[in-house]
């Protein structure tokens, strides 16, 4: 009777051990899956930040605050330099109204040729500094006073 009791106990422990191993394997599988998901989420987030930068640059190209126009006919892919001078102040004075457009980013334009002017249009960093993704776009800058065009670069730094 003692032997059969022990046999029964061993059988019981065997079953419990199988279940424990089973759940441990499930747990490992789940942890592995979560780690993979986390990795792909991070990748998607980075991709979204770059897409957001492209989205911001497109918006800037079409905003009446920056876009070149002649008698209210909009010129594509052109930014008016005199508007930039004024927009610097107007946007920084009304930053809250542009948060939805630019988000947590720094937007600035550098003239590359023939001069080297710079305009800081918008800057709203996050409280925690986790770095940023910087994207650059070539743009055409128009000076209505001299009726001439220059080359410039639009920088959009999206804060992570």
């Amino acid at each position: 009777m003692k032997i059969s009791k022990k046999t029964a106990q061993v059988k019981m422990f065997e079953t419990i051990a199988v279940l424990v191993v089973f759940f441990v394997l499930i747990m490992f599988g789940f942890m592995f899956y979560t780690k993979i998901q986390k990795g792909s989420f991070e990748e998607a987030r980075e991709e979204n930040l770059i897409l957001k930068a492209i989205d911001t640059s497109q918006k800037i190209s079409f905003l009446p605050e920056f876009q070149c126009s002649r008698d209210n006919i909009q010129e594509e892919n052109c930014i008016d330099m005199l508007k930039l001078d004024a927009a610097e102040q107007v946007i920084n004075k009304n930053k809250l109204d542009y948060v939805e457009t630019f988000g947590f980013s720094r937007v600035y334009i550098q003239e590359v040729y023939p001069s080297q002017d710079e305009w800081n249009l918008y800057d709203l960093p996050k409280q925690e500094d986790k770095g940023k993704i910087s994207t650059q776009f070539p743009i055409s800058l128009y000076n209505p006073l001299t009726d001439t065009y220059s080359f410039g670069v639009l920088f959009v730094d999206n804060y992570r």
Partner: peptide, 12 residues
């Protein structure tokens, strides 16, 4: 906002 920018532009 846009008219402020145009006003400053005209002044310039």
């Amino acid at each position: 906002h846009v008219s402020e920018i145009y006003a400053a532009r005209e002044s310039s």
